[in-house]
Every structure is written in structure tokens, then in C-alpha cells.
Amino acid sequence: MHIVDGALSIPVVAGGAVLAAAGIGLGLKRLTIENIPATGVLSATFFVASLIHVPLGPSSVHLIMNGLAGLVLGWAAFPALFVGLLLQAVFFGFGGLLVLGVNTVNIALPAVMVHYLCRHGIGAASPNRAMLWGALGGALAIAFTTAGVAVALALTGNEFVPAAKMVFFAHIPVMAIEALLSGAAVLLARRVKPELFGALFQEKSHA
């Protein structure tokens, strides 16, 4: 979900940049000596995951996995996903330069929201229940991201509203895919290495 430069109005681009800077700042406060390597390696993992194409009928979609990123990283998802978007823009030409703030907010804010909404469920006693919360988080993150894109477009001008609505509904299959994948990923991590959702990036409210 990379919006390109030139599509959004200047106030929307500036507002996105301010929000992104605030979110990145909050995330950076949580980066300590102990978890900078972990955040970097996990950020690289989500970058590689975004290269995976999942077949969807005759076409295919690439993964975003921002719900899972939020569940693992908390607020650190903001700088981690920003770094990914920056590298994609500079080296692959995805998205744009000035819209980087808006794109960061659209991907990372849903990650943080999912962290607060679903993180406690990931710690549930039964791994199957954790899987359901993981699936919910995966679907919600894409729903919020698509809604964020639609809001950015609608704030720019009414001419974008019909297309923005259609983009939201067109992403329902993507929500389903991300839900299934996030659920399966959570189930595996809960069985193999529950510390993935452990204390490293836990936000204070669940402590």
C-alpha cells in the first residue's frame, strides 16, 4: 500500500510527516542496547516477508504482515517499518519520498493499534486461542491500513472517494490471507519460541 508522490494534498502530506515523526520518536525511545540488534533483524525479516507473493486466484498479492510486526515489536514497529519503506522507496522505487510520512503512518499505526488490541490474546494459555487472536490482528491491521489510505485520499479531495471505497472492498481477500498467515505464524511461534512475544518489546500496559 504505497501511495505515490503528487497524489495527496500538501496538508495531508505534512500531517502524515508530523505523525510519523512522533511515532518514530516514541518507538526509538524503546530501542535500547539489548534490542537494537533484535529490532534490526526482525525489521529485515518483515522486509523479506514483503517480497513473498501469495497466489490469489489467477493473480497474486505480496504480504504486508504489519499486524504481526505490531504484535512482535510494539511501538518499535514504527521505526522498523519506516526503515523498510525508506529502503523500498530509495532502492526499488516503491511509493515516493515526500509521502513517506503518510505511508509510514498507514502501515505502522495499525501495527501499534493491533499490538494494544490483540497482544494480550497472544499470551492466552491455549496456542489455538492465541492463533485466533493472531488472525484477528492480521485482518485488523490490513483493514486499518486500507482505511488509513482511504482517509488520506478522502482528505485530499472528493474525487478520490469512490475509488478509495472500492480499494477498501478490494482488499477484503487480502485481509483474509493476512489473517490466515498471521494466525499460522503466531501458532508456530507460540509452540516453538513463545519469547517472540515476550518481554523484549512489551508495552507497559500489559506488564
Binding site: 525479516t45 501469495v54 504480504l63 498471521s182 494466525g183 501458532l187
Partner: peptide, 10 residues
């Protein structure tokens, strides 16, 4: 694919 991503994270 979900297990793949989970395994990569672990």
C-alpha cells in the same frame, strides 16, 4: 506460508 513467516521470525 504462515509457518514459513513464523519460522523466519523465530
Amino acid at each position: 506460508f504462515g509457518y514459513l513467516v513464523g519460522m523466519m521470525l523465530v
